[in-house]
Simulated scan of single mutants.
Amino acid sequence: MTAAQADLLIDRPAVADGAALWRIAKDSETLDLNSSYSYLLWCRDFAGTSAVARGADGSPIGFLTGYVRPEQPHTLLVWQVAVDAAHRGRGIAAALLESLAARLGAERGISWVETTITPDNAASERLFTSFAERHGATVSREVLFDSGLFPDGPHESEVLYRIGPLTF
């Protein structure tokens, strides 16, 4: 853990954080932006499987949204990870992933993490492969959603990364 991460408060998002999460996602210019309403709902219904990093004033500076797969109750699917531009490069995304995976490992017996990454997203690939390396876990990759499945214009294929088994 870096000094910057030691001062970081990571906890569960609250509904009041939804607008800030939407703004961080929007400003990232890389994430598929969901409606502001969906971020409010996410902070209400999936707060237990998500995490928010807070700055010194308590406001969100990064987030990770996820859920436990209903058919695979030991698998956390990470939906989105984003860090405010002013706070990037400090390891906040890695701290969010480590914190949430450890919490859900203890609370729910999570032993696998899944996410999808487009082939052009080198930052996400580094985040998740380095997470796997730190945990001595394997990473399998396969196309989950081919680009032709997306009805709203050009979209790269989404590659499923499955990481595990994990022990905490």
Score class of each variant (00 low, 15 high):
Leu77Trp: 15
Thr138Arg: 14
Ala19Ser: 12
Thr116Gly: 05
Ser111Arg: 15
Arg141Ala: 11
Tyr161Cys: 04
Leu144Asn: 08
Arg141Glu: 15
Arg90Ile: 00
Leu41Val: 13
Lys26Ala: 13
Glu125Asn: 11
Glu156Ala: 13
Thr30Phe: 11
Val143Asn: 06
Trp79Ile: 00
Thr129Val: 04
Ala6Pro: 03
Leu149Gly: 01
Asp17His: 06
Ala123Val: 10
Phe128Gly: 00
Val159His: 11
Gly148Pro: 01
Ala14Glu: 12
Leu33His: 09
Asp17Ala: 01
Leu40Ala: 13
Pro154Glu: 15
Gly89Ala: 11
Pro73Thr: 02
Pro60Glu: 13
Ala132Ser: 07
Arg54Ser: 07
Ala82Ile: 02
Gly55Pro: 05
Gly89Ile: 05
Phe46Ala: 05
Arg134Leu: 09
Arg162Glu: 07
Thr118Val: 11
Gln72Thr: 12
Gly153Asp: 11
Val52Cys: 02
Gln80Ala: 06
Ile24Tyr: 11
Leu144Val: 00
Gly58Thr: 09
Leu144Ser: 09
Gly55Glu: 06
Arg134Gln: 13
Trp22Thr: 04
Gly66Thr: 01
Pro165Gly: 04
Leu104Gln: 03
Val68Ala: 06
Ile117Thr: 04
Arg141Asp: 13
Glu71Lys: 13
Leu160Val: 04
Gly136Tyr: 02
Gly109Ala: 09
Thr49Trp: 02
Ser59Met: 09
Ala4Met: 10
Leu9Arg: 14
Gln5Ile: 03
Val15Asp: 12
Gly62Asn: 05
Ser38Met: 12
Ala137Trp: 08
Glu114Gly: 04
Ala3Ser: 14
